[in-house]
Design a protein around this nucleic acid. Structure first.
Lengths: 203, 203
DNA sequence: TCATGATGTTAGTGCTTACTTACTTTAACA
DNA sequence: TGTTAAAGTAAGTAAGCACTAACATCATGA
């Protein structure tokens, strides 16, 4: 009699529906612009149900941030990269990075909208996104510098420059201008940017 | 009797105080997070005075966007650039661009916060900021390509890449993380980034 | 079959907010 | 000095908001 599995499952279902609806609405209208009524409506439940699952609107918001912030590591990519040609490796990283950003578009939008309200949360999201990738990339550069493939630039700055290139593309095209980007455009962009960056860093 | 100049000046004064206070508050707390009471308070006037100058909160918001959007042209820089060494020219452009962004920090913050509410305004701001500079930069690159200094990359993409590098730096450091950047750090960054980009684009 | 837990329905509370009305104060200027 | 334009003071309105209380419905599962 301890746990009614089916009821519990149902509860988990509506809980997730609320998190998902909240993510989308907060991303579209901002925290203050999203009403609990609308979130519940979009989740297909009564407003009161929202408060039965989350003690307040803010609690819901924080849980959304937490549950969507986690990202799978990319460290495992390192050995694979070392067997590839430099430009191909860079193109692969760029592609994975852009995909990652697209997947988390809503979260990033929230990050920008609420950066004044929750600066520490925003920094957390940012670091979760960027730090590990920066370090992976920097150590990859350092490795190639030791092998004499790359010239002696500051690896940390190099990593940030590389990611900055693609982040700013994502930022303007997909977040600000909301353009639909075709695969072909994306490939051309990657080729051009990687071309510049690769030539700029080899010996 | 037509115009009482001093009265008119006074009115213009409080009007500007309101625009300035609005800019700062909207940038800090977002459109919905800023109350008309607080804006008036920060401007040092009564709330009612705000409504005597602007028909509504939204009207104030739109006037703020309009009056701060305009930016002086950078086209005049082109002839000057052509007498400089390539890397020095790039460093100068980067410096001017970063200064421009810092000057308009509040406006850019508003742009990010309200991009869902006023997408067309946001696009306008973006284009005002970026388009002219992109074209100036691209034609500079084309000129150097014709003279055989630079290799044959896509000049438009190159310009976007260059600006993206520095925009994304501004974005993360000054907007998101709100770090105070020293002049020395900024100079090192410019040197590193320009170094990569210059080597990546010369023949 | 019937107790239980999840959800729905409806109505409402107290607070905040954009905006208004009516009246007063202040200072420039003819 | 008296008129006028700009700003202040004070009180209030209507709407929207997060959140609550009371009760009804319905499917699950012992």
């Amino acid at each position: 009699m301890k746990i009614r599995t089916d009821n519990a499952e149902k509860a988990r279902g509506t809980r997730e529906k609320l998190l998902e609806a909240g993510l989308r609405l907060f991303s579209e209208k901002g925290y203050l612009g999203s009403t609990t009524k609308d979130i519940a409506l979009r989740a297909g439940v009564a407003e009161l149900t929202l408060f039965r699952h989350f003690s307040s609107k803010e609690a819901l918001f924080k849980e959304i941030i937490n549950s969507y912030t986690f990202l799978p590591a990319l460290k495992g990519l390192l050995p694979e990269l070392q067997e590839m040609a430099y430009e191909d490796a860079l193109a692969l990283i760029a592609k994975k990075f852009l995909n990652r950003l697209s997947e988390r578009r809503e979260l990033i939008r929230i990050m920008y909208s609420e950066m004044q309200l929750y600066p520490s949360k925003v920094k957390e999201i940012y670091h979760n996104f960027i730090d590990e990738l920066t370090r992976t990339l920097a150590s990859y550069f350092e490795h190639l510098q030791e092998r004499g493939v790359l010239r002696g630039f500051d690896a940390e700055y190099g990593a940030k420059a590389f990611m900055g290139l693609f982040f700013s593309y994502f930022n303007t095209q997909e977040l600000l201008l909301k353009k639909e980007i075709t695969g072909a455009e994306r490939d051309k962009l990657i080729k051009q940017y990687v071309g510049i960056f690769a030539r700029g860093t080899v010996k």
